Simulated assay, not measured.
Amino acid sequence: MSNLADMLVYADINQLHKMAQLYQCECNSNSKHELIQAIMTTIHSKDTLEKQIESMSLAELRFVNSLLFEINRSYSLEDLLAKAQQSNKVVPITAETDKVKSQQQPRELISKLRHRGFLFNGHREQTKYLFHVPRDMQHSYQAMLKKKFAQQLTYTADPALYRDEQRLLQADITITLQFIKEQDVMLIADGSMYKRYLTALLEQLHIEEQLPTKVAWRFGYGRHFTHYPDRFSLLYDYCIAQKYIAEQVTGNLTLLAPGELRLLEDKEVQAASKWKAESMRLYVHWMKVYKKAIPNMPSLVTWIVQLADQWVTLDSLEAVLLPYLNDFYYEQSTDVFRKRIVKPMIHLGLLRYGEIEEAGTVIKTTSLCKTIVH
């Protein structure tokens, strides 16, 4: 990934003219060198970038956000069209404004970012049909948007009491594996546990959860999300993915050799290095499973990490980030934000949460969060 200066050198003269016109550069338009110098001087001005961000439509901001935290990426036109189309979805903004439509043609969005100097074609034969984001522009937009978002947040003093679930998910993995080892856990036809086994296991775990109601629409967040409560569904899927357990065709749930080893290493898992390594695997698994339903989840998680380094109200954080989030079929974007992003981050030990009487729910990142997400 190169910086803006490098990409301007190889940019098409027509793109330079469009950029100079957008940024109102005063220079000799027939001189590529002068065009580049004028664009560089103007575009790296703090006031210029702030004005650019303020002038962007919601669809443009959502499109920029989808590219903001990706590293060393080259994008085909098809990649960008898909991201641009995703950025056009109808999203809720506030309680007063029920739905706001921000429809712009995907190719128009791509063209606008090229004129702003945020996207460039590659200059080599093998990359000329690919698009790239200048590294310094990426960082500048991150800084400007962070400042814009932070100004809208409500930061608070420390709550009198707060909850921190670090290590609890790992402890419950151990409990689950031990339960499966000791019990002859039977599965029903859809592959989920009989209710008596599931209820008995849930009662042993550190975080209490209720079984999903049969009338609830539940899909999109894992193999047995339909049958299991949210946190346990994530834990169970992780154990399957790690080959700790297996659903046998005979209708039994059995502990496999890696699961046996995980039980034997339980004391080591509690040590700092092993514990953090498993935390990383859990985080990656959560991201992999949930990203199918929430394509821009990585950028939203990164924003939470950057903006919640102090105690901040959940309501104000939600108001800032909700425009960048879509509904998912049966779930409103508010539920997606709170239940599918913030709540799992708490369970993974990435966020602490507490209550302040006048402010409501407040959250703050943990040191583990910064280590893992960064």
Rank of each mutant, 00 (worst) to 15 (best):
residue 293 A to V: 08
residue 212 P to G: 10
residue 214 K to E: 10
residue 20 A to Y: 02
residue 186 M to K: 15
residue 90 V to D: 06
residue 326 N to V: 09
residue 163 R to I: 07
residue 219 F to N: 09
residue 289 V to W: 07
residue 186 M to F: 14
residue 70 E to T: 07
residue 300 L to W: 03
residue 124 R to K: 15
residue 148 K to V: 12
residue 100 V to D: 02
residue 337 F to N: 03
residue 140 S to A: 13
residue 112 K to R: 11
residue 187 L to H: 11
residue 121 N to D: 04
residue 371 T to A: 09
residue 233 S to A: 14
residue 149 F to M: 10
residue 77 L to Q: 15
residue 153 L to N: 02
residue 217 W to D: 12
residue 371 T to Y: 11
residue 101 K to Y: 06
residue 367 S to H: 15
residue 103 Q to H: 08
residue 90 V to Q: 09
residue 194 Y to C: 13
residue 68 L to M: 13
residue 22 L to A: 03
residue 355 E to M: 12
residue 299 S to D: 12
residue 130 L to T: 09
residue 101 K to D: 06
residue 362 V to Q: 00
residue 79 D to G: 05
residue 124 R to P: 06
residue 229 P to R: 06
residue 232 F to L: 02
residue 103 Q to I: 12
residue 53 I to G: 00
residue 273 S to V: 09
residue 229 P to W: 05
residue 176 T to P: 14
residue 199 T to R: 10
residue 264 L to N: 15
residue 355 E to F: 15
residue 61 L to H: 03
residue 117 G to Q: 01
residue 321 L to C: 05
residue 217 W to N: 13
residue 249 V to A: 13
residue 89 K to R: 12
residue 170 Q to M: 11
residue 291 K to I: 05
residue 305 V to K: 09
residue 237 D to C: 02
residue 312 V to E: 02
residue 23 Y to M: 05
residue 338 R to Y: 12
residue 366 T to H: 12
residue 301 V to F: 00
residue 69 F to S: 08
residue 157 A to G: 13
residue 21 Q to S: 12
residue 43 I to N: 00
residue 108 E to F: 08
residue 366 T to M: 04
residue 45 S to C: 08
residue 214 K to G: 03
residue 39 I to V: 08
residue 22 L to P: 05
residue 367 S to N: 14
residue 290 Y to I: 08
residue 316 S to F: 14
residue 297 M to T: 09
residue 84 A to V: 05
residue 149 F to K: 09
residue 283 Y to W: 12
residue 9 V to S: 07
residue 168 L to D: 04
residue 69 F to N: 09
residue 201 L to Y: 06
residue 231 R to D: 02
residue 354 G to W: 06
residue 114 R to W: 00
residue 249 V to R: 15
residue 63 F to E: 00
residue 361 T to W: 04
residue 255 L to D: 01
residue 17 H to V: 10
residue 190 D to Q: 14
residue 146 K to E: 07
residue 200 A to M: 04
residue 7 M to H: 07
residue 243 K to T: 05
residue 38 A to T: 02
residue 93 I to N: 02
residue 63 F to K: 01
residue 246 A to C: 08
residue 306 Q to P: 01
residue 229 P to F: 05
residue 37 Q to E: 13
residue 46 K to T: 07
residue 124 R to W: 10
residue 233 S to R: 04
residue 305 V to H: 04
